[in-house]
């Protein structure tokens, strides 16, 4: 437990988190390693975990029939992987595949949701850490969807 709290302390996600909350959420966490090519989760599977990437890189992929698999985002050290555990039906929307040896802190989604329900202060701390990167990704996804590198100015 102490080890996980220690690992957590060094992740940007935990910046500014008080020791009690850190210890509380560490109770839902474990350390995981994925080799290159291993999946963190697959599209359509139960989204029962999320990850704080400590080292390595993960490709978020979608399969387009007839065209193959496309990576639309890479997640690197210091970032959050997985958001589908937050909302029902807790189902993964895409594949997440390690493209390098990747170490991450894995959180049990249900365990963390229960702790957030029990103590809204913890829930709010989690929300403050989840919403900004998710919003940034949404904004980036909009830019990507606009195909902005092809746009004309004149």
């Amino acid at each position: 437990m102490k080890d996980i709290a220690e690992l957590l302390r060094h992740h940007p996600f935990a910046e500014g988190l008080d020791e009690d909350t850190m210890a509380l959420i560490a109770g839902c966490a474990k350390n995981v390693v994925r080799q290159p090519g291993d999946y963190f989760f697959r599209e359509g599977a139960a989204a029962d975990s999320f990850y704080l990437v400590r080292h390595g890189a993960v490709a978020l992929e979608a399969f387009v029939p007839g065209r193959g698999t496309f990576t639309f985002l890479t997640i690197k050290a210091g970032e959050i992987l997985g958001a589908d555990w937050l909302i029902p039906p807790y189902r993964s929307s895409f594949d997440a595949r390690a493209i390098e040896l990747t170490r991450a802190i894995s959180f049990d989604g249900k365990c963390l949701r229960d702790k957030c329900e029990a103590d809204p202060r913890v829930g709010y701390e989690m929300m403050k850490r989840f919403i900004p990167p998710l919003l940034k990704r949404l904004q980036s996804a909009r830019m990507q969807a606009l195909g902005m590198y092809d746009a004309a100015n004149a």
Binding site: G68, F70, Q144
Partner: peptide, 11 residues
């Protein structure tokens, strides 16, 4: 990118 690309994908 396709799966062979190991660089960054995103904005």
């Amino acid at each position: 990118a396709g799966p062979e690309w190991t660089g960054d994908v995103g904005y």
